[in-house]
Nucleic acid binder design. Structure first.
Lengths: 192, 192
DNA sequence: TAAAAAAGAATGAACGTTCATTTTTATATA
DNA sequence: TATATAAAAATGAACGTTCATTCTTTTTTA
């Protein structure tokens, strides 16, 4: 009788390879064989860690989304004022997108294609609850415009994805000055 | 001796089928055979109109992008004030995204994946020049923040894509009230 | 030493594209 | 106006390749 323990490093290598290859070629244009090669693993081994290709990309998506929101809320706590909370979260998100461009680009692709199962997408959305709660509080206190969460998200957070994707493509350079200007634009668009 | 004239209706049917199928399944998951079937055409016929699958999707992208910008600038002319010009263009873009959700969703997928050739993407960007010119003027007149065009685009225009994509997925409903609120958010984020 | 993990080769299905052939179209001729 | 004809347009079947997944065997681990 032996304890079941598949190596977590191998799983991580597979996730990492998936992100890089899907970023460069898209989901259906990256063969399992290539993912296996990049992770230094046999194609058959992938199936010890994931049910199939779809399961691999779903789990990759949820992993990255979890890392993203963990980073976003790391220094936030509910005792903060709405302004301070928003600034902290926004800047942590910007920080994630800047430092982990590959991950951010992968999320953008997932969110704009039919690549990920609807169920996994719904799971991913749940991670953002603390931000929605903060907005709820901001609306109650009359600090944030009383409009839909989707509108708030569209103008406050989502533009960062656009910037990161275009930065990765070499069209645009995000730097500290840009980030401050972007923060100001974000706050101006949602504050009352 | 006979004049060469391939039917434009058939080409349009192929483009339309490509948009719908790629929206639902993604580029690599839509076989040429399916596109052909939806356009009521033999698979081989596609190759009379396009070089190959990649060419088909590139041309589809440029067609949709051209329709998008034509719609956006239809009622704009350079004699307008910056405020008026921006409002007109912004609302025309919103109108396009609302009325032609399929097209808007297709553009969002193209802009966030490696699906389209880099060269075709560059071609697509050129269509937006009138908007960039307007911003240039707005910056000179001190009406618009003196920041990068990408930042302006990210906060003024791009959020609409997010809204349309999420609307199509049934998560969110865009209506006239929302659109007005979104316009206000857009203008607040870029005005000086 | 026995179960778990991993490997590489094999399998069968799906797909983009091409090929050989048929159908349509527009004009030239009677 | 009716017929002939040659090029263009369209077709369905076929080809060769690629890929996800599975199978059998080997290696690792405790």
């Amino acid at each position: 009788m032996v304890k079941l323990q598949k190596s977590i490093e191998k799983r991580n290598a597979l996730i990492k390879a998936t992100i890089e290859l899907v970023n460069n070629s898209g989901f259906h244009a990256t063969p399992m064989s290539k993912i296996a090669k990049m992770a230094n693993v046999s194609p058959a081994t992938i199936y010890l860690y994931f049910d199939n290709k779809q399961d691999l990309v779903n789990k990759t998506y949820l992993d990255v989304k979890a890392a993203y929101t963990k980073h976003a809320f790391a220094t936030y706590h509910e005792e903060m004022s709405v302004e301070e909370g928003f600034e902290i979260i926004w800047k942590r998100i910007a920080d994630f997108k800047l430092k982990e461009g590959e991950n951010a680009m992968f999320l953008a692709q997932c969110d704009n294609t039919p690549m990920i199962d609807e169920h996994s997408k719904q799971e991913g959305i749940k991670h953002l609850q603390p931000l929605l709660d903060l907005w709820e509080r901001g609306k109650k206190e009359g600090i944030i415009k009383p409009i839909s969460d989707y509108l708030l998200y569209a103008y406050a957070i989502n533009p960062l994805s656009f910037l990161v994707v275009n930065q990765k493509r070499g069209v645009f350079q995000l730097d500290e000055k840009n980030v401050l200007e972007a923060y100001e634009a974000a706050w101006n668009s949602i504050k009352k």
